[in-house]
Each structure stands twice: as structure tokens, then as C-alpha cells.
């Protein structure tokens, strides 16, 4: 019964948290730019308006299915990532499953955008995939390191192992090199500046979103809200000892997100090849050194 309630309410809770976090990010950046900024619930208004649009154009059936794959894949990931009080699905799939179901939304979007027949979209996808190759390698490597120490690939077990050691047991503290490498990779994973090559409004007209409007863009924003929480949760579970209650969880989410946002607020954008090169030159060697420490 409990599980059923969680299954029903988890997406709603995370959606609310995610939209507030996105609203918070807009407010935060506005304040850094010395603006007043939109109200914190602004993202709700945006999503509502988009879902309420009268025309919704689509370029074909794959465009429609892509939207389903996009949010469907994110919901799938969301259920498999343990949050405080709910780790029912964690027993059916481990971190490796999560790493790869995280790519389903990206693939779904890529296919849909491809069908819109807009080169801006295709360029955006090509950049997104290149960035993926950039940040995913160091990120997975850090995870491999942790799995090797704890002899498990289950995210829930990794979280428990960290909690057993108190704050000193947190991944970021016990394996600082891996933690920092993953933090940089996370910045790329969330597509925050300086790794924002995929959207790049002034170069390629928001890339994948070029031909998306109305409810399509609305669902993409819902996905973005949930996806951002899920990705931050993965980092929290792997490196910040997870969370035992919702208060701790939300505090960790906001602290982590603020850290990434502060970097986001003051940086420009890397060129794609520079971004990939950066990912392979800084976080990747860090992760490799971290792993060498683990082995020897």
C-alpha cells in the first residue's frame, strides 16, 4: 500500500520540488544580475501556459512519440533512484541500469528533434551527444571506483555504506578526487554553463527546442524539472551520503544546486570541442588518479 502511494505521489512531489528549484534558479540568477527576477512559482505559470496553448504543431509520429519517451524515460529513472523513504525499485535495477536509463530521454528527444527536420535542432542534438561523451566517461568512472570499494553496484547499498560512516563516510570526503570529478561532470550533465552548448539560444536557436512549442515544450519543461532533481539526487546518493529524511534531502538538493548555479551565473559558454576537451582533461584524469588510489 505504502509503495503504491509512493508510486503515485513521488512524481508529483519531485515535480513540485523541481519547478521550485527552477524558479529559484531564475530568481538567483536575476539577483546576481541585480534584477528583481520573476516570482519563484514562475515555472508553474510557464508550464501551464504551454499546456494551455491552442495550436500544437508536430512534424510527424516520431515527434509525438519522442515526447512520450522523453518524460516516460525520466519517470523511469526517477523510480529507480532511491529517495528518503522510498527505494522499492532499487532492488530491481542497480546503478548501471540507472546510468543507461538516464540516456533514454536523451535518445527520445534526439529522435523527435531529428524528425522536426530543423538543422538547428540536429546541431543541438549533435552537440548534446558530444557533451554526453564528454561528461559521462568521468562520471561513470567515479561510480566504478565507488562500486569497487564497496563491492556492490546497487545505488541503495552505496548510500547505506556511506551513511554507516557518518559524515566522514561521505563519498566527497572519503574519496575527494572522485567527488570533485563527478561534481564537474554533473555540471555538464545538467547542461549548466559553461557546458550549455546544446541549447545555445543565440547560436542555434535553442537547439533541440527549436521546433517545440505548446504542449511539447510544456512536457519538456516538466521533464526538465523532474530530471534536474533526479540527476542531483544521483550525486547526493553517491557522494553526499544520501539522505535519511526529506528535510535533509531538500537541504542537500538546494545547497548542491546553488553551488552549481553560482558557477553557471558567472561563466560564458565553452565551444563544444573545448567543453569535451575540458571534460577529458580535468575530471577524467582526476577520476583516474582517484581509482589508482583505490587500487593501490
Amino acid at each position: 500500500m505504502n509503495v503504491v502511494l509512493w508510486i503515485i505521489f513521488l512524481p508529483i512531489i519531485l515535480f513540485v520540488i523541481g519547478t521550485f528549484m527552477l524558479g529559484y534558479s531564475r530568481k538567483f540568477i536575476a539577483r546576481i544580475e541585480r534584477r528583481y527576477g520573476p516570482p519563484i512559482q514562475q515555472v508553474f505559470y510557464d508550464i501551464f501556459k504551454l499546456m494551455n496553448k491552442k495550436t500544437n504543431i508536430s512534424h510527424g509520429w516520431m515527434h509525438d512519440i519522442a515526447i512520450l519517451m522523453l518524460l516516460g524515460g525520466t519517470l523511469l529513472t526517477m523510480y529507480f533512484v532511491p529517495v528518503p523513504g522510498f527505494h522499492f525499485f532499487a532492488q530491481y535495477g542497480d546503478m548501471l541500469v540507472i546510468m543507461y536509463i538516464l540516456l533514454i530521454p536523451a535518445l527520445g528527444m534526439a529522435l523527435g528533434v531529428g524528425e522536426t527536420a530543423n538543422p538547428n535542432g540536429s546541431i543541438g542534438i549533435s552537440r548534446a551527444l558530444m557533451m554526453l561523451a564528454g561528461y559521462d566517461i568521468p562520471f561513470v568512472l567515479t561510480f566504478i571506483g565507488f562500486a569497487m570499494i564497496n563491492h556492490t553496484t546497487s545505488m541503495y547499498d552505496l548510500m547505506l555504506a556511506q551513511q554507516a560512516g557518518g559524515i566522514a563516510g561521505w563519498g566527497l570526503i572519503s574519496q575527494p578526487l572522485l567527488g570533485i570529478a563527478a561534481l564537474i561532470a554533473l555540471q555538464g550533465m545538467l547542461g549548466e554553463k559553461p557546458f550549455e552548448v546544446m541549447v545555445a539560444p543565440h547560436e542555434i536557436a535553442t537547439g533541440p527546442m527549436t521546433e517545440m512549442g505548446g504542449k511539447y515544450l510544456g512536457i519538456m519543461m516538466i521533464q526538465h524539472a523532474i530530471g534536474i532533481v533526479v540527476e542531483l539526487t544521483i550525486y547526493i546518493n553517491l557522494f553526499l551520503g544520501g539522505a535519511v529524511n526529506w528535510f535533509e534531502y531538500i537541504v542537500k538538493l538546494f545547497v548542491l544546486f546553488t553551488m552549481l548555479l553560482s558557477v553557471n551565473a558567472v561563466f560564458g559558454r565553452f565551444r563544444t570541442d573545448d567543453a569535451v576537451r575540458f571534460m577529458w582533461k580535468i575530471p577524467l584524469p582526476l577520476a583516474i588518479i582517484g581509482i589508482l588510489f583505490i587500487i593501490f
Binding site: Y36, G37, Y45, K49, T206, T210
Partner: peptide, 22 residues
């Protein structure tokens, strides 16, 4: 758009393509 008048207060944001704009 910027600090002096800041139209984002009213939820008005610049967007790039006609598909997204109101």
C-alpha cells in the same frame, strides 16, 4: 530586459523561435 526595468518580473522573457513565443 536588464537590471533597470527588468521585464522578467512580469514573466516576460525573450524567446528565440516563433514556436515558443506568445
Amino acid at each position: 530586459m536588464t537590471a533597470r526595468f527588468d521585464m522578467e518580473r512580469f514573466g516576460i522573457n525573450p524567446m528565440v523561435t516563433p514556436r515558443q513565443a506568445d
